[in-house]
Write a protein that binds this DNA or RNA. Structure first.
Length: 595
RNA sequence: GGCUCCUUAGUUCAACGGAUAGAAUGUGAGUUUCCGGAACUCAAGAUACAGGUUCGAUUCCUGUAGGGGCUACCA
């Protein structure tokens, strides 16, 4: 059993013994004291002095005395005010290492039997991915891996927003100005090529509007009257009617975009189990709305538009289909949700979508409930904060959007520069060097993003390149590479056999510190999974690497004072390396054996 | 305007209602011929403001100031 769990239960037992009073064990606070503290755990005993009707010190002391009798692994305790500090025997921790060194599945939690479907990425198919998508993808991918480690079955899905007005914009611009350009002929990545036509459309539209506004029209009027706008509406109509020429154009451009996206996914090490297309799900959504209308869950206004009344929930009235019968955003989501449930019957459906859509997902869940969908309660909006620039939000109009492919290339280049400067890579082949720089560049980028609590907005400054020192991915990767180096040397010298059981009778402070951090790995996985927070794991791994580096700086390993210390420290090192490798993997980050 | 989220060192991020609010970066000063110096050590530096609840508040409640988001028959 987990120590903190044990302490909670034994504390409840002790309080009952002492004062004949029942406290629920999950209300007992067990903390981990500050890092340089000589005690392992702290029980907050202030609340018990009300029960005992004695001073906090006295109550805490009495509790400590009883716990010493109830838990044989305890070595000592100390009562400071209402804080009960507990120290476990060195032997307890040594034994923990011995068990862990032979446990290949350390940190993999038992199966929950739950099936979880997680959606992330969700791009429009009219322009390339940007930094915002990267945060989304890194969070989505990492949470998937973390939930897997926590014992769940995971289905990772993408949703392509592949139809609608915005898609027609790039199509129309290509039709007008494209001149049969292709990714091959232009040498450009498909998503970037299509994105250029999207921008081109906006420029041309702007020009038309400016002319109209010069004639005295308001901006709003100009937008309505611009010829390009009616052409867009016409194209959308043709698309909905399935007109062959438009559909072919649509297919062609979208294929280019998908190929571009795939190339990016490959570079960042991302993959999906399935992709849904809104062009497939929106019709289904319409029939969901019709069905709800028949059942009286929704209502129709005089103009023919369909609404749901959410006044009771203080969310107002929400449009579900337009007066002309066409679908809106939420219509598609209703169809998509049904299809996913049919496909997989998941216990939970997670939507990784930015917090600007908090309202939308509240409504979606509520509407699903009103429709009595069996999956309604399992809907969870994994709402994350936007990535801001120093100037504020990224804006397409102002050209401040940070392109994903460019950023990835820059990270590789920065890594290459650092690697060359440090000059530790003599024996690397060209291929290995490229691989290493990409590993480090992606490690820096992913860690930079994932170390921040997803719920919070975060800031990215394009002027300053992402750091490789301090609280970073490369810091942890370096720690791993250095451990590998030590283990290699140990193997060369004495043929160190990890399976040999470590014998040790007492611990140095730094050893104990690392060991305790190792101990907390499984509970960190569980916490990260429950809170949907890769940042919890990222922070943990950084702390582990830091603790290890302190240990490494202070105590010799290969030249340890005796054989048992040497073997023990090698065991400890290899367990830390294992956790770093597995833990970073859950963040989507690889670790190199040399760097 | 209505709803909602946020405000912690110069800067970027931490802290189940618990001890002296942690890191990183930047700044200054250092690291024994020692297993990898992308590391380690030391110093200075912060809870927007005013109340309230509590043995105890960065955390919970109320108000003020400043900022973000939503408030489309866009997605």
């Amino acid at each position: 059993m987990n120590i903190q769990q044990l302490l909670r239960e034994k504390t409840a037992e002790a309080i009952f013994q002492l004062y004949n009073y029942e406290v629920s064990s999950d209300k007992v606070a067990v903390n981990i004291p500050p890092n340089d503290f000589p005690y392992d755990y702290t029980i907050v005993a202030f609340p018990f002095s009300k029960i005992s009707k004695k001073s906090p010190e006295q109550t805490t002391t009495e509790l400590g005395g009883v716990l010493m009798m109830l838990i044989s692994e305890l070595e000592s305790f100390e009562a400071v005010k209402g804080f009960l500090n507990l120290r476990f025997k060195d032997q307890f921790w040594i034994q923990f290492l011995q068990e862990t060194i032979n446990n290949n599945s350390f940190g993999e939690l038992p199966p929950t039997g739950q099936k979880v479907l997680i959606e992330y990425c969700g791009p429009n198919t009219n322009k390339p991915l940007h930094l915002g998508h990267l945060r989304n993808i890194f969070i989505g991918y990492s949470i998937s891996e973390i939930l897997k480690a926590a014992g769940n079955d995971i289905i990772k899905v993408n949703i392509y927003n592949d139809r609608g007005v915005h898609i027609c914009k790039s199509m129309l611009a290509y039709q007008k100005y494209g001149d049969h350009e292709t990714p091959e002929s232009s040498g450009e990545k498909g998503d970037h090529l299509v994105g250029e036509y999207y921008v081109r459309f906006e420029q041309e539209l702007r020009a038309q509007m400016n002319n109209l506004m010069a004639d005295g029209l308001s901006e709003e009027e100009a937008r309505k009257q611009a010829p390009l706008n009616s052409e867009i509406s016409e194209m959308l109509r043709k698309w909905e009617d399935g007109e062959v020429e438009v559909r072919n154009l649509w297919q062609t451009l979208n294929q280019w975009v998908y190929q571009g996206f795939e190339a990016t996914f490959l570079k960042i090490g991302n993959d999906f189990d399935k992709a849904y297309m809104e062009s497939d799900t929106y019709l289904r959504g319409k029939s969901v709305v019709e069905d709800g209308l028949k059942r009286g869950v929704f209502f129709k206004k005089a103009d023919g538009s369909v609404w749901v009344d959410l006044e009771e929930e203080a969310l107002g009235e929400k449009l579900l289909t337009r007066a002309d019968g066409t679908s809106v955003y939420i219509t598609q989501d209703l169809g998509t949700a049904d299809m996913r449930y049919e496909d997989y019957h998941p216990d939970r459906m997670i939507y990784t979508v930015a917090n600007e859509q908090d309202y939308h997902f509240k409504v979606l869940k509520l509407v699903c409930k009103k429709l009595n969908r069996p999956y309604a309660d399992g809907i969870h909006h994994l709402s994350y904060g936007l990535v801001d620039l120093p100037s504020g939000r990224m804006k397409t109009r102002e050209g401040t959007v940070v392109d994903a492919d460019e950023l990835i290339d820059e990270m590789d280049a920065t890594a290459a520069k650092k690697t060359t400067e440090l000059g530790k890579i003599e024996n690397f082949s060209e291929q290995e060097l490229l691989q290493l720089n990409h590993t480090l560049g992606m490690g820096a980028l992913k860690f930079f993003i994932l170390k921040v609590d997803p719920k919070k907005k975060m800031l990215f400054n394009p002027e300053e390149s992402i750091d490789f020192h301090g609280f970073t991915g490369p810091f942890i990767q370096y720690t791993y590479a250095r451990i590998c180096s030590v283990l290699r040397k140990a193997a060369e010298k004495n043929g160190f056999d990890r399976k040999e059981i470590t014998k040790r009778d007492r611990l140095e402070f730094k050893e104990r510190q690392v060991l305790m951090q190792v101990y907390h790995y499984p509970s960190t996985i569980l916490e990260a999974a429950n809170k949907y927070e890769p940042s919890t794991l990222a922070n943990y791994l950084y702390q582990l690497a830091k603790d290890y580096n302190h240990f490494y700086a202070e105590l010799p390993i290969l030249n340890a004072e005796d054989e048992s210390a040497r073997n023990f420290r090698l065991d400890l090192s290899s367990v830390v390396a294992l956790i770093i490798r597995k833990g970073m993997k859950l963040l989507g980050i690889e670790v190199p054996e040399r760097m």
